[in-house]
Amino acid sequence: MEYLYTIAILMALNVILASSFNFVIGYGGLISIAHPVFYAIGAYGSALLARDGGVPVLLAIPAGALIALAASVLVALPSVRISGDYLLIGSIGVQLGILEAIKNVGWTGGAGGLTNIPALLRPGTDHGVYVALVVALAVLSVLLLHWITRSGYGRAMSAMRDDELAFAALGRNAVAMKVAIFALGCGLAGLAGGLYAHYFRFLAPAQFDILQSAALLTMVVVGGMRSTFGPILGAIVLEVLPQAITFLDLPAGLLGPMQGILFTGLVLVFMFIRPQGLIAAGSVWRGRALEEGHAGQS
């Protein structure tokens, strides 16, 4: 039962990560590979606040998400101002640099990892409660992102991706929009981090390395970029496949590389054979029938 709970929680967390990553790279058109690092910032931030700062876990988790959000703004502001290419390069630097820092600093537990993270639930509580909480938050995140992308904001994101110059010449602020998209996406990743930290109660830098970036890219590209259900499907497939590999009983040294090859190989196969992913998003933006549906309102 515990095993199934663990799978369910990881799957729900991956849904949050993949959906928010899809929001950033798919809808926002912002190429970043640093999503795992904001996941890590949320996890470490929340864990340290609760463990060493005495902050109640229930407050520490949203605080961790806010720290991740603030960090993402600091990354996005200088790079997005100029051009999308710089965000990618900056994100690689952030991904590798912050993990390097976590490994070298004492108060994060270093490369060995951070232990004794307080749990959210009292000892003895059924872990099914935690599963329900994480799944509920995953559903809420997906709904929030879906709602945004179908609103006037989503319409503007679509226009911005189509033609940034024309977008700006119509009085729309593309830079502010990109920073906001990046911040929301990374903030959600930070939320997932906090949820991870206070269930598994152990964090190590290796959990957030570039393999995670590859896995998230795979979830989004294979699932279907810019669709609501694509990344969810991608997250589930990618959680199940490696579990299947675990059952092959490979030696530990081969397991990691095999998973990595699987992730990256899948992306390449899809990029060339089915670039739109399993669930293809249409090329035309479709919003809610907002006005027609609410004709009697206001």
Partner: peptide, 17 residues
């Protein structure tokens, strides 16, 4: 430089003040 992913009406709405 129209927005190909949007309908005519939505193209206009991007310019709304």
């Amino acid at each position: 430089r129209l927005f190909p992913s949007l309908s005519v009406l939505y193209n206009l709405l991007i310019g709304a003040r």
